[in-house]
Nucleic acid binder design. Structure first.
Lengths: 180, 180, 180, 180
DNA sequence: CATGAATGAGAGTTCATTCAT
DNA sequence: TATGAATGAACTCTCATTCAT
C-alpha cells in the first residue's frame, strides 16, 4: 500500500505499473494479486484508506457546536495542514484521483462523505449567517480548491511553512467564505 | 487538436491512445504522426496552445493601472469564467496536466508565464497594501485553486451558473486575498 | 535509380524506405510509383541494370581465345576493378542482394548469366588444363568471393589502391585457380 | 537464440520480426523482452556468441609455431569447414551481419578479434617469407572471402562436399596467399 | 505527368495478469 | 503463501501504397 501510494501520487495510476509497485514493496508481482483482485481494486482500496484517514483526521477532536464557527474553521484548517504534512503523498493522491474513471461507487461515496464534513460545517455557518449564503458546493469548491493548491505549493518548497504563514493563509480562506 | 484536447481532458494523457484520438478526429492513426513527431509532442503542442489562449484571454482588455485593484480583479475573474465557459475542456486539461512529467521546458515556461499574470496583479496589490502581505505564490495558489475547483463544480452542473452566483463567488475570492 | 542504388547499397533493402528514396531523388514519393509498380519491382529493375552493366563491363574488349588464359584473367580482374572503382555502390549492392528473397526469376537469371561469364572462362581453362580440375562452382566461389571482399576492403580505405597492389592481388587470385 | 539465428541468417535482420522469432521459439513475444532489452540487443548478443564460437573453433588445437605454415593453414581450413558444417547458419549470419549498422562496439571488436586470428597467421607467414608480402588486410580479404563463398556454395548443395574436394579447395586458397 | 497528404496494416515493445513451482 | 517467468492483448509508431489535386 505504501509503495503503491507513493507511486500513484507521483506518476498517476496509468503510468504506474504493477511490477514497479511490487519492486518498491520488495515483493513478487504475483503477491500483489493475492491481496488485490486487480490494479483497479488496489487503487480503490488505497483511495478509500486515504480518504478514511483524511476524514478521521478532520474529525479528530472536532470542537462541538458550542464553539464559534471561526474556531471550528481553525480546527479544520489545522487538521488539514497536519494531514498535508504527515501524509503529503496521500493528499496529492486523493486530489489527483478523486474524479478518476476507475473509482468505484464505494470510493466515490467515501470521498463525498469527506466533502460532507466540509458541507456540514458550511451549512451550519450559513444557518448562523456567519458564512456566505451561497450554494454549499461552491463554497466547498473555493475553500477545498484553495487548501489543496496551498498545501501543494508548500510541499514543493517554493515557500517555507511557518506558523505565521499558516495562520495568515487560514485567515485568507476564512475570509473567502465568511459573511462580511 | 480538438479531439486530443477532449480526450486528454476527460481521460488523461496515459489513458488516451493515439488511435482513439485518430478515430475521434476521423483520420487515420498515421496521419497524426505527420503533424506531431510523437504523442508527447502532441500533448505539449496542445498544452501550449491552451495556455497561450488562456493567457491571451486573461490579458484581453486588461484594465490599466489607473483602475482600482478591485476592478482589475473583476476583469480577471470575468475573463477566467468566460474561458471556463467557452473552453471548459481546455481549462480542465491545463489544470490536470500542468505538472505532468512529460511537459517539456517550453510548456512549463508558458504555464509560468500565465501564472506570472496573476503574480503581477498580486504584487501590485501588495505594494498598494490592498492585497495581503503574504508570499505571492501562496496567494496565487489560494485564488487559482479556488477558481479551478469553482469552475469545475459549475461545469459538472451541480450548481447552476447565474450572474449573481458568479458575482458572489468573485467577491469570495477577492475577500480571500484583500487586506481587511 | 541512382538514389535507390545508393540507399540500398548502404542500408539494405528493408531498411530503405520509399519516401527516403524519393527525398534523395528530389521527387515526390508518388512519382516513384509511376515508374515502378512497387518497391520489389524497383529493386529488381535496379539489380538487373547493375548486373547488366557489370556483365557488359566484363565483356568489354574481352580478349578472344587466342590469348592466353592468364591474359584473359588479367582482363577480367582489371575490368572488375574498374567496375569496383567506377560503380562501387553497384558492386556492393549486387553482392549484398544477389541471394535476396525478393529477387524475381529474371534477376536471378541475369545474375547467373554474369556468373556464367566467369564459368565460361573457368571451363575453358580447365579444358586447357591451365585451371584446376575442380567443380566450376567451387572455383567461381573462390575467385568471386576473393574479388568481392578485396574490393570492399579497398573501398573502405583500410588499404590504399595502387597499381602494384592490384597486380599483386590479381596474381594471388590467379594462383588460387591455376594448375601448379 | 536458435530461432533468431535461423531467421536472421535466412532473411536478415530487418525482415525478421520479433513475433516470428517468438513463434519459431514457441514462446510468447513478450518473453523475448525478458531476456533481451530490444531487438538490437538480441542481434548483438547472437552475433557475439556466434563469433565467439567461431574464434574458439579456429583456436581449438591450433598447432603451435614449430609446425609449418602449411600445416597451420590446414588447421584453419579444416576448423572453418567444420564450423561451416556444424554451424552453417552461424557462418551465414556472421558474414551477412558483420558490417551492419546496428552492431555495437563490442560486436565489432569481437569480429575484429576473429579476423586478428587470421591476421596473426598471415603476418607470421609473411615474416617467414612463406606468405606473399602484401598488406595483411588484402590477404585476409582474399582468403576469408574465398572461404565464405566456398562454404556457401557447398551448403546450398550445388556441389557435393567430399574430402577430396575440401583438400583441393584448401590447396587453392593456400596457393592464393603463399609465395611462389 | 507529378505530387505528397492520407492511410492502415503491421512492426517493436510494454505490462496486467496468470500459474507452475 | 509467495513467487516471478511467461503471456498476449494492446500500445506507440512506421511506411508501402494510393489518389485527389
Amino acid at each position: 500500500m505504501k509503495a503503491a501510494l507513493s507511486l500513484f501520487a507521483e506518476r498517476g495510476y496509468d503510468a504506474t505499473t504493477v511490477p514497479t509497485i511490487a519492486d518498491k514493496a520488495q515483493v513478487g508481482a504475483g503477491t500483489i494479486y493475492r491481496y488485490f483482485e486487480n490494479k483497479e481494486v488496489l487503487v480503490n482500496s488505497l483511495f478509500q484508506e486515504c480518504v478514511r484517514l483524511l476524514s478521521a483526521t478532520l474529525l479528530t477532536n472536532m470542537p462541538n457546536n458550542d464553539r464559534t464557527m471561526r474556531e471550528q474553521f481553525h480546527h479544520i484548517f489545522v487538521q488539514m495542514s497536519q494531514f498535508a504534512n504527515h501524509h503529503d503523498k496521500a493528499l496529492a493522491f486523493i486530489d489527483s484521483h478523486s474524479s478518476a474513471r476507475y473509482l468505484d461507487e464505494s470510493s466515490v461515496t467515501m470521498f463525498q462523505d469527506f466533502l460532507d464534513i466540509l458541507r456540514d460545517f458550511i451549512e451550519r455557518g450559513k444557518q448562523q449567517q456567519i458564512i456566505c449564503p451561497m450554494p454549499s458546493d461552491v463554497l466547498i469548491a473555493i475553500v477545498y480548491g484553495a487548501l489543496i493548491k496551498l498545501f501543494k505549493v508548500i510541499k514543493t518548497g517554493v515557500v517555507e511553512e511557518t506558523p505565521d504563514l499558516l495562520l495568515a493563509a487560514e485567515e485568507c480562506c476564512w475570509n473567502a467564505v465568511r459573511v462580511h
